[in-house]
Design a binder for these strands. Structure first.
Length: 239
DNA sequence: CGCCAGGCAACAC
DNA sequence: GTGTTGCATGGC
């Protein structure tokens, strides 16, 4: 078998050549500005998030999208914005019931309302947290109730813009089908595979994770569409 | 109708 | 440490 490092690079190259830049993390409040599409994706423009408000919007989205389709998160974020319950300060002071009602479309709304308030308080109490180095930042984020491994790493990569490879259910599915990981591989194991195999390039990590999500939605679905899959010739599932 | 979606904490063993 | 369960809406 080819070396895993080589495979990881080739997979990224193929996905990028197939789908192009993804413009993550989407920031809805930037929709339709210069170089940003109507959902907040800034494809080919790596300058965002630029302000602390934009970084905070990434954190909000990271909580709201836990096991939830992004389209539902967009609705919840729109409610928060139009009801002026979007800043950390507005969220900590908002009645939890009201907050839950506003984010209803994102599902798990009672849990997520509590989590949003806890996380908002954490960011108010630790205003410079995103300046910390990736490893220290990860350790501190994981102490916050409601922030697990993927949410922490999404915040590190997409809000703080530091090199941390984000693993999710799609990554596990694709890597296990490709034959590069066991089906029950742990989060940390799979993350080490990527981070030991690739240079710590924040821009590349950013695109790679987003490309994995895109690929899982288009081809490597629960019921995979292997016929036209751009990775098929390297995929163990078809050997 | 059932299945799935950019997880997590709490709990069992 | 690993496995299981509750949490919930909206799109297909």
């Amino acid at each position: 078998m080819r070396q895993k490092k080589t495979m990881l690079i080739e997979i990224h190259t193929t996905l990028y050549d197939t789908y192009g830049p993804q413009g993550w993390w989407p920031i809805a409040s930037l929709a339709n500005k210069q170089g940003v599409d109507d959902h907040g994706y800034h494809k080919g423009n790596h300058d965002y998030p630029k302000t602390s408000d934009q970084q905070w919007e990434v954190v909000l989205g990271a909580i709201l999208t836990q096991n939830t389709a992004w389209t539902n998160v967009e609705k919840a974020l729109a409610h928060l914005r139009t009801n002026k319950t979007i800043t950390k300060e507005q969220i900590v002071t908002c009645d939890t019931k009201k907050l839950a009602r506003l984010i209803r479309p994102a599902g798990y709304f009672n849990q997520k309302a509590n989590r949003l308030k806890i996380v908002a308080k954490f960011f108010i109490d630790n205003p410079l947290i995103l300046e910390k180095k990736a490893e220290e930042l990860q350790k501190e984020l994981l102490t916050v109730k409601g922030i697990g491994p993927e949410t922490a790493d999404s915040i590190i990569l997409y809000a703080a813009k530091k090199p941390m490879f984000v693993i999710d259910a799609y990554t596990k599915r694709i890597m296990s089908r490709m034959g590069l990981a066991e089906k029950n591989v742990s989060y940390d194991q799979l993350q080490r595979l990527f981070m030991n195999g690739l240079p710590p390039d924040e821009k590349m990590f950013n695109e790679y994770h987003a490309l994995i999500v895109e690929h899982a939605k288009r081809y490597c679905r629960t019921k995979p569409l292997c016929e036209a899959c751009p990775l098929a010739k390297r995929c163990k599932k078809l050997l």
